[in-house]
Every structure is written in structure tokens, then in C-alpha cells.
Amino acid sequence: MRLGELPAEQRILLPARAGTIAASLAGALALAFLPWKPVAPVPDFVALVLAFWCVREPRRVGLGIAWALGVVVDVGNGVLLGQHALAYSLLAFGASALSRRILWFPLLGQALHVALLLLIAQAVAVAVRLAAGAEFTGWTIVAAPLLGAALWPVLSVLLLAPQRRAPETEPPQ
């Protein structure tokens, strides 16, 4: 069987470049800082991309990067400092710990796992905020992590594209 005929998830990928990881995280930050309308449930792109790299490259993207990103998001959005940092740290821990298991599943199963992780991260952020004296804003906030998980298959295809090698054609004998 030739390499080019294998289904997508069984092909051997090139190692991820540090540049790709950094660029995707910066892109997610820029998306998070877009002037969104405050009413629409906007998925947390930074959490999603972070979870992706924690699952794919748990030895290179981990808690330190997650925490630093969280603080940057906190500052950029002008929210309580440490709220996203805590949520992203837990998210990175969960994603790294489950990375072997998650990669075993097809994309849809992966998305379900990620939905749970994103929900937990969101719940932690909300809990920190409620403890600091904010009032609960209603259950629409659950929509954002679910939307984020729905984007997981698209994101996987997009971010893995630079790692795919061109299908090798064997020279005719």
C-alpha cells in the first residue's frame, strides 16, 4: 500500500515547527481582541488553539505558556487578573494529561473531549469572577465553549496542514 493512499489520520506528520505554534497562538490572540459585539457568544479562540497544541505537542506547549497567555488575555480584556490564567492552566493540564487518549479518537470524539475541557475552563473562570463579587449573567455563557468545540475539526485540519508532507509518488519500476 502506498503512503498517499492512507486515510488522513494515519499518515505520518512532519514535526510541528515552533513558528507555526507561535503564529497560531498570536492569531488566536488577535481574534480574541477583535471588536466583537458584547451580546454574541464568541468562542474563546485562545483556549481552543492552546488546547490543540497541548494535545498535539504536550512536551512543548504546557502550563507555563498557558499561564502567560492567560495573563495577556486578562490584561487585553480588562478583566480580573488571574481569571483566565487559572482557567488556561487547568485547561493545559487537562489537555496534556488526556492527550494520548484524545488522539486515539476520530475528530468528532476529540471535539467532545475538548468541549468538556473548555466547559471546565469556562466554569473555573466564572467561579473566580463570582467569588470576586460579580453577578451571574445567565446560561448563555455555556454556548461559547460548545461553539469552540464545534470549531475543533476545522482547526485541526487548518493547523495540521503545514505538517503534512506532499504524497510521495514512487518512481515507476
Binding site: 480574541a32 466583537w36 458584547p38 480584556n77 480588562g78 478583566v79 449573567t137
Partner: peptide, 9 residues
């Protein structure tokens, strides 16, 4: 520039 993404404030 933008509305904060903070649903609480």
C-alpha cells in the same frame, strides 16, 4: 477600539 470580552462588566 473594542468592547471587552467580559460578560460580567
Amino acid at each position: 477600539l473594542h468592547h471587552g470580552r467580559d460578560p460580567f462588566a
